[in-house]
Amino acid sequence: MKKASPFEIFKVFFIIGIQLLGGGYVIVPLMKKYIVEEHQWMKEDELIDYYAMSQCIPGIIAGNISVCAGYRAGGFIGAVAAILGLISTPFVTILILANILVNIVENPIIQNAFYGIRISVIILILITIKDLWGKSINSKFTYTLFLIILSSLLLLNISPAIIIVLSAITAFLYSRIRKGEKYD
């Protein structure tokens, strides 16, 4: 595996950051092109491994996998260079857009546009739910868990963090009980 300088790593992730539009999975083909094929900082099967692992740990998938690749290519400084490169264009773009938006938001046409965009956002959320549904809710256990969590969320104002921790514990205990059933 080739080793790379922090500046090189920053540059590659800067280019990836400009092109990264959409969900976290968009980063995989980009990384395949730049990291695997162009610079050979990792092999393709390693990229797939890191992608799978990035989903299993806390954080934004695209950020996690960039840190992994940066670390592989250039150690700790490489990891810092990768994440900074990835987020610098998005960061500046957001600040510029936020400023423009604040200034034009009183305009009636813009307000009408955002009236519609708010509905678009709901549709985006609903489509994301549809996409996640099959691989998330596919058994009696997951269906029950979904219904319990959803109804408690609609009735009470619970922190998402508490929901995540409680579900993790529930699933862990459930898998223990299932294992017990199998071997008894």
Binding site: V121, L132, F146, L150, A171, S175
Partner: peptide, 25 residues
């Protein structure tokens, strides 16, 4: 095994937001 529980939780969290925003809109 933990993820088997985390995924429905994530979908439920998102669904509650979708429904709340839909209601408010």
């Amino acid at each position: 095994s933990i993820f088997i529980g985390l995924r429905p939780a994530a979908v439920a969290l998102l669904t509650s937001i979708g429904l709340k925003l839909l209601y408010k809109t």
